[in-house]
């Protein structure tokens, strides 16, 4: 059952990202990205190979729709690799073992924002650095990252708050 839920989530997130969010452009270098949500919500005990591979698949699917030729895939694989280390740094091992996946009702708003916010920051920094790929554009990369990060994080947290049922 769980696998089916993740598959449905995968398709919904890809569709929402490419047909909704990619069309809403506000300028100043802001880009909304909600697809890291899928990587955050994969079960904590997912084998690392699957975690990397699924993130790659997710990234490539987004790339196909937004003509970025592998840029999203690269950033998704990057945060998938960092994810578990970062979770372990913030949360104690016992707490992580109890949870199946991150849930906002269990951890609370603030902790989720820290756990996911930092990964989104890394993701955006990686993405925009490779997109521009020039030292002279350094400030613009920082501008894009710092402006897009709150937007993506807000969307991701709101989606979790609205669509995910409380775990009792």
């Amino acid at each position: 059952m769980n696998i089916i839920r993740h598959i449905i989530r995968f398709f919904l997130i890809v569709l929402a990202q490419s047909f909704l969010l990619n069309q809403i452009e506000v300028g100043l270098g802001i880009q909304w990205m909600i697809y890291p949500l899928f990587i955050f919500l994969l079960p904590i005990k997912t084998p690392i190979f699957w975690l990397l591979f699924l993130s790659f698949l997710l990234g490539i699917s987004i790339d196909i729709f937004s003509n970025t030729f592998g840029l999203h895939a690269s950033s998704a694989v990057f945060i998938a690799a960092v994810r578990n280390y970062w979770y372990q740094l913030i949360e104690s091992k016992e707490d992580l073992e109890e949870m199946e996946e991150l849930s906002i009702s269990q951890l609370g708003f603030f902790k989720i924002a820290i756990l996911q916010g930092f990964l989104i920051l890394l993701h955006h920094l990686w993405f925009f650095s490779f997109e521009m790929f020039k030292w002279t554009e350094f400030l613009f990369i920082i501008q894009k990252t710092l402006l897009s990060m709150p937007c993506s994080l807000a969307l991701i947290v709101i989606i979790q708050k609205i669509f995910f049922k409380k775990v009792h």
Binding site: F53, F69, G70, A73, A81
Partner: peptide, 21 residues
């Protein structure tokens, strides 16, 4: 092996990106 798999996936996506852009 995990690190090598990571490098492999990064290699595929970044080379695809830079060759196509």
């Amino acid at each position: 092996q995990i690190f090598l798999f990571f490098v492999l996936l990064q290699g595929i996506s970044l080379s695809f990106y830079f060759s196509n852009v």
